[in-house]
Nucleic acid binder design. Sequence first.
DNA 1: ATCGTAGCTTAACAGTGTTAACCTCTCGTG
DNA 2: CACGAGAGGTTAACACTGTTAAGCTACGAT
Lengths: 232, 232
Amino acid sequence: MERSRTSEADLRRAILDTARHLLVREGYKSLTMRRIARAIGYSATAIYLHFDNKDALFHALIEEGMERLYAAFREAVARHPDDPVQRLQALCRAYVAFGLDQAEYYEIMFMAHPEHMERYPAEKYRRARRNLDLLAETLADGHARGMLDAPEPRVGASIVWSSLHGAVSLLLAHRVDVRIAPEVFIHAAIAHTIHGFLPVREAPGIPPDIPPALPFADGAWKRFFGGDGEAA
Amino acid sequence: MERSRTSEADLRRAILDTARHLLVREGYKSLTMRRIARAIGYSATAIYLHFDNKDALFHALIEEGMERLYAAFREAVARHPDDPVQRLQALCRAYVAFGLDQAEYYEIMFMAHPEHMERYPAEKYRRARRNLDLLAETLADGHARGMLDAPEPRVGASIVWSSLHGAVSLLLAHRVDVRIAPEVFIHAAIAHTIHGFLPVREAPGIPPDIPPALPFADGAWKRFFGGDGEAA
DNA sequence: ATCGTAGCTTAACAGTGTTAACCTCTCGTG
DNA sequence: CACGAGAGGTTAACACTGTTAAGCTACGAT
């Protein structure tokens, strides 16, 4: 139809833009090949000339999302160059804000079912890793200054991510107790995430460190981790 | 075919069992109406005589899953009737163990896309709420004894859930950094979750409480929460 | 003996992702 | 300039999906 917009070979660009818009405006379930094609005035199969399959299109969108999140993260870091705790808090806020504000982006980035991610090349998660690195550096900084208890920043960064991801995904799925105001929940989630890295004081009945050793006696998750050792 | 098993009108039971087995053995994507039907020797439409639609079948499975989780939770509570911190830890372990051991159950219970949950009657989440109640009671107990800092147990319970859910869902999606051993990550996630409720000590540059007021200056997530006020 | 209906069937619809075959038009080379 | 190659697009089709409409069969009650 009005094919003037995609005059050159940047149809790939048009596909991605349309996919993103469709995702944001119509929602996840409306993101189908035929619908994208119809929106840009091409046939569905034309998409396959630029993307191997729907997964590949998803991966491209995920990379874009990671880039956006990274931009938000860097801005948060730049805003608090001195205080690592404040910086950590700014990062947490940036993450939650990104997740709620760009909900559909977040969904395909972090909530897409593993089935879609099977063929995902682990290579491409480098962009995602940069975001974790910013968290790890902040934790390491705070640990060095004695303000945060994060002896293993890399693990700590994943914990921060994991904790915030839980909050965002439950919010997006509307699974949080209705009697709790969203703002309260968000504030509590961020506070708890940071709180978990603050040094503890001795108190009655509290071991200096949460118990040691293996978290489970029996091999509960062995079945799960038995099959494949790689992740991303 | 061999329809002797479903001699009576408990075909509903057979559908649920088959769906669960199929889910566990073949994975999420193989859980289709036709496949379930074929497995029990009925036609696909026969399922619609016992369930309104696929969502309703999912809901039934979710309720079963919630029941199982509740059983595991009650066992954890019974094992540590005295120490709330130990009890909280046992609950955390039970949750993670359930998530990893019954991965497919966990997926439809907590990771199914909101699209599937649109028509879900909020009423039915009462079973889910009981699990949160056990967490809340434990937090309240610990708070009363000065061992845990959880002034609002109901919020705290959701935070615990949220935190663990993040860990489990990232593990199930194989999204955790490959350089971190799963056992290490799991232990750190549980430890951090509990740690977040331990009283802090004064330290250089750390405010007594993580900052007050609204977590965001601009109305970042307003678009998200603007539309619908109900959740579940 | 007949009617109603519970319980199940087949046929069909509107979708989905994806592939194969074809068509057209431009561009580099003999 | 003529021509073959191939880039970039098309339609038709396959094997699926959830779901609905219509029809069949057999049994229990009147």
